[in-house]
């Protein structure tokens, strides 16, 4: 791409807008606090460990309206080695709740995929609660882009 004066102007205007928002002191968002609260309710106050659960979502979503999200938890899915539930949260949405999956031994595997709405670039979180009471968490940042002219 040949960089013309017009391009440079456009880019710097964009960067100013970006820099300006960056300079504003951002208070911890209510959604982030709400997310914490929901995790604690789900785990019964237990801090989740990392491992066992994998959250899969795109690094960059072309549109926040339809973002694929998958979870999978390592488990034999029989006897006591069972995943009961997996909760998905989006900490930058007006309401962080996305969905909660409930599994049984008949699920065969603790995996599920759905499509979610993300209001902006943010962390998506998945928390798994096992039958033995242990809890695991995975987190991934998804960048939500805005379109060309229409946005």
């Amino acid at each position: 791409m040949k960089l013309t004066r017009r391009h440079a102007l456009g880019l710097s205007a964009g960067a100013i807008a970006f820099a300006a928002t960056g300079l504003r002191a951002v208070p911890a968002s209510a959604s982030v606090e709400d997310t914490e609260k929901r995790i604690m309710e789900f785990t019964g106050g237990k801090a989740p460990e990392s491992g066992k659960i994998t959250l899969d979502a795109p690094e960059i979503a072309e549109n926040g309206n339809t973002v694929p999200v998958s979870v999978s938890v390592e488990s034999a899915m029989s006897g006591d080695d069972l995943v009961e539930s997996v909760m998905i949260l989006a900490e930058g949405n007006p309401n962080p709740a996305v969905a909660t999956f409930h599994f049984t031994a008949l699920s065969g595997a603790a995996t599920a995929t759905t499509r979610m709405r993300l209001a902006k670039t943010q962390n998506v979180i998945a928390v798994a609660r096992m039958k033995d009471g242990s809890v695991f968490m995975d987190k991934k940042e998804v960048k939500v882009t805005i379109g060309g002219c229409g946005g």
Partner: peptide, 17 residues
Amino acid sequence: FECDLDPAISANPFFEF
């Protein structure tokens, strides 16, 4: 399998399990 859905699930809900 069961799922509780919140309003952040996209239009035309899709599940794979």
